[in-house]
């Protein structure tokens, strides 16, 4: 775990050394700010619901852009050879990179607390859904980072990693709206697989173990898969 911590620190620093971090943060704040405030005054309600409603969609583009380079770049430059010959396990590498990306997303969400403050100034803000919303956002980000890492681990091309990651994240996001294709008997199973419904539950301030299990198992499966892919590359 010593190795994972070192990789975490190195990767987090690495995000801010590359221009991608600043481009991604700017894009995210522009999109989320516009989606939120363009409708906020129309609803005339003191909550952050429109912000959190748009979050899965925005994340499915932003998160793969954050994770795309994490493995692909290492494979492409050959630095992966130096990394794996240092005394660190594959799971240590995956966990280190995962936590770095998650921390980056958390830092990216930090400025949006200003939305909460401004709303609290204008009206009576219920803090429960706000807290739930941010918890849900981190869980959702974790699951999408897992998908993004898995996509990055299968290719040395960052663009492919981005597109593959985006397709799967976007797929999970819109899954609940595509259920009319599914035969009725399987509906319950398929309804559980989309990410948006689970996220919206948590964002309403209702912490249900089914939603937690959904996100945690998605994170575990994708990270385990990534570690497996690294193992099989040998």
């Amino acid at each position: 775990m010593n190795g994972a911590l070192t990789i975490f620190k190195k990767e987090l620093k690495g995000f801010f050394f590359s221009p991608i971090a600043y481009i991604v943060i700017t894009t995210f704040l522009l999109l989320s700010g516009w989606f939120f405030f363009s409708t906020f005054f129309l609803y005339n309600q003191a909550d952050l619901r429109t912000f959190f409603t748009q979050l899965p969609l925005i994340f499915s583009f932003i998160v793969p852009a954050v994770t795309m380079r994490l493995f692909s770049e290492e494979f492409n430059s050959g630095s992966f050879e130096l990394l794996t010959t240092l005394p660190v396990s594959n799971s240590g590498i995956v966990v280190g990179k995962f936590l770095a990306a998650l921390t980056f997303i958390a830092l990216m969400l930090l400025p949006t607390l200003a939305y909460a403050f401004s709303v609290a100034m204008l009206g009576d803000l219920d803090l429960g859904p706000v807290f739930g919303g941010y918890c849900g956002a981190l869980l959702l980000a974790g699951a999408y980072i897992g998908i993004g890492l898995l996509a990055s681990s299968i290719t040395r091309n960052q663009i492919i990693a981005f597109i593959v990651g985006m397709i799967f994240c976007f797929g999970l996001t819109i899954f609940n709206r595509m259920l009319f294709f599914v035969p009725e008997g399987l509906l319950a199973v398929f309804a559980y697989m989309g990410s948006t419904a689970h996220f919206q539950n948590i964002a309403r301030g209702i912490i249900d173990t089914r939603d937690l299990i959904y996100f945690l198992s998605l994170i575990f499966l994708t990270l385990y898969g990534t570690s497996f892919v690294l193992q099989e590359r040998k």
């Binding site: 590359s18 430059s77 050959g78 630095s79 130096l82 005394p87």
Partner: peptide
């Protein structure tokens, strides 16, 4: 890996 120090060909280091 703890016992071995390795220099690969062309030393692919982190450039940035």
């Amino acid at each position: 890996k703890e016992m071995i120090g390795y220099l690969p060909e062309a030393a692919p280091l982190y450039g940035e």
